[in-house]
Nucleic acid binder design. Structure first.
Lengths: 352, 352
DNA sequence: CTTGCCTCCTTAATCAATTAAGACCTTAAT
DNA sequence: ATTAAGGTCTTAATTGATTAAGGAGGCAAG
């Protein structure tokens, strides 16, 4: 059984390929009788209908949205945040009748070819680590892109939460527990590769709005509680990794007086800070409280964090992408809430 | 900024399109110097690399696996069974560097065009209701197909569990609790649309092997426990819906003597039976035990059911599809286990 | 000087469709 | 009889790539 195309059927019937195409895609352009015969021959030859790839090429539409998750898919779907987001996105895709192409991210050394070769009309990037090669690949495709949660990519719509409010919520939580000696570890403020202490001037000059906003929230809550922000040690990272978090943790915990609560702007960083605390034999939350962000990797570790309205974000991401590139990049904000787990508690008693 | 293709770059450099293509896809076919210039111009023009759709067409590979879930995606991902299966499949896809195209199933009247137009190399059908139009569409595409759980499609690989063993496990559970008056509600035995009582001859003549096997397991366990199978009321449905389950439940519970345990071959059906019990004011599990199947919708309802090795099934489905169509259709069986929840208990005391 | 072999590039066929524009034939109105 | 209008089908351009086969030029060996 050789390959069957429109042409095969056309030849069989002695008509032109165009006619057969019309029979399939625009029945009113062809006589009912001929259309019947076309279908008959198609059936007989086992023709499955116009080849979707050729159709896509000609029409310039892929009928699919590309989706990039951080980490492996198996991991992503173990994560309630991702699942919730995905449900929202899927609903939007469903309503529009387009597919959702889940792209495997190269872990380790693998190439980003799947992204380069993905047959999609747009991309949705979710919570990708900064500097991930797949992100460049996505941007290189010059298709509509929306980014959810992170990283913030100038020039593309960003969906997330009210960062200053969420940051304030996180900070207020430890402040209300009684903490006064805070420490902060943040990633994604600048893109200059700086790693180390950051003064207030530099903090305020952060080029990444989302993280800047989150930080603004921290500061506002601290000052509201009477804490002098300039005295809060602030360690900046250039990579969002557990190892980076550990580094920041060690730096912060070596300070004197030692902070009793550390705020981080990602769960991954928070896990690294917990590692550092473990390295030093510090009890969490007895001697140190740690707050993460995103509720993305927090559950198993018992991390207190901020949870976001994932489903709504997913749905809106889908809607945006399906409407094509928005006139100008927007920043859409969704609800968030504080999730208190086992990594925060009142500070240890002071003894002089 | 007009459209940029290989040709644009070729013209700019005064070389042929083929050369530019080689520069991208087979660097050793082109001098390093020319390749450098190609990349330079590509960069300058904002060329994203060879168009994936055109590439797909020419190469005859889509680089994606199509995935069809029952129900809406939002529902599917709320279901731990689907998520587990998906993790397994995603891992296989990841290893092979192909994407996973999740296809929206038309709910209601919508057309099945997404399936017809999906740019994929193979399909994985998961737990689709019998007779769903999307299934015909999938089969019409004449691509490799594997089916997971249901429906059984002659001529294509089927992945699932050892149905007779799993059926026996479910039945043995209530038998060991002491139940002797069983009732059965099953869907997907025949495709003749029959709804109502089914005698043993008809049961054995079921055209769908998987469900027939499950039923064989019920019967074997019953007879092993000394229960006369011919006396067990057996209600057959043609649709796997909660409403159908309720109908079966009413029919079975109207029997005299009333069954104390009802076996169903899907969780959805079991939920319907619970509805019927509620309609009649029967206490579950005090007066009636109900067993579902698949652990797909069972958790919240506290349904006792059979859980399957979803992850392994997903991984194997992926492997099979990526290896192309298997030489001949196989039936691959995976582990299963009984999950006891709150819908089963010993039968009520007899009082005469 | 010729032959053979590289290397680097071009030619041209191919993948499988869609669709605007035009040709041809009927039928109906003027 | 003439013109217009429909309906049905064809022609041919287009979508954006890949790749086998072949040609031109340079170089070394015979």
């Amino acid at each position: 059984m050789a390959k069957v195309t429109l042409q095969t059927i056309a030849d069989r019937l002695g008509v032109s390929r165009a006619t057969v195409s019309y029979a399939f895609s625009r029945p009113d352009q062809v006589s009912a009788e001929l259309r019947r015969r076309v279908m008959e021959v198609a059936d007989e030859l086992g023709y499955a209908g116009p080849n979707p790839t050729a159709r896509s090429l000609r029409l310039g539409r892929a009928g699919a949205l590309g989706l990039l998750f951080s980490e492996t898919l198996a991991y992503a779907f173990a994560d309630p945040y991702a699942v919730g987001f995905f449900q929202g996105l899927a609903t939007a895709a469903e309503d529009a009748g387009v597919g959702l192409l889940i792209l495997p991210l190269p872990h380790g050394d693998k190439r980003t070819e799947p992204v380069r070769n993905a047959v999609v009309d747009a991309f949705c990037v979710v919570s990708l680590p900064d500097g991930h090669p797949a992100l460049d690949e996505v941007l290189g495709r010059r298709l509509p892109v929306v980014v959810v949660d992170e990283p913030y990519v100038p020039g593309h719509p960003f969906l997330g939460i009210d960062e200053p409010a969420a940051g304030a919520l996180a900070a207020r939580h430890v402040l209300e527990l009684g903490h006064r000696r805070l420490g902060v570890a943040m990633v994604g403020l600048h893109d200059d590769g700086h790693i180390g202490w950051s003064d207030v001037a530099r903090q305020r000059a952060a080029t990444f709005e989302a993280m800047r906003g989150r930080r603004d929230g921290y500061q506002a809550a601290a000052e509201e509680a009477g804490v002098d922000w300039a005295g809060v040690p602030f360690y900046e990272l250039s990579r969002n990794s557990r190892e980076a978090g550990r580094q920041a943790g060690h730096a912060l915990l070596a300070r004197s007086p030692r902070p009793t609560a550390i705020l981080t702007n990602t769960d991954v960083l928070a896990l690294g800070v917990l590692d550092a605390a473990a390295d030093l034999g510090l009890d969490v939350p007895g001697e140190l409280s740690v707050v993460g962000f995103s509720d993305s990797a927090a559950q198993d570790a018992g991390l207190t964090t901020i949870r976001q309205a994932k489903q709504e974000i997913g749905a809106e991401a889908g809607r945006l992408l399906l409407a094509g590139a928005p006139a100008r990049p927007e920043r859409l904000l969704f609800p968030h809430e504080l999730i208190v787990r086992a990594s925060t508690a009142p500070p240890p008693q002071e003894r002089r």
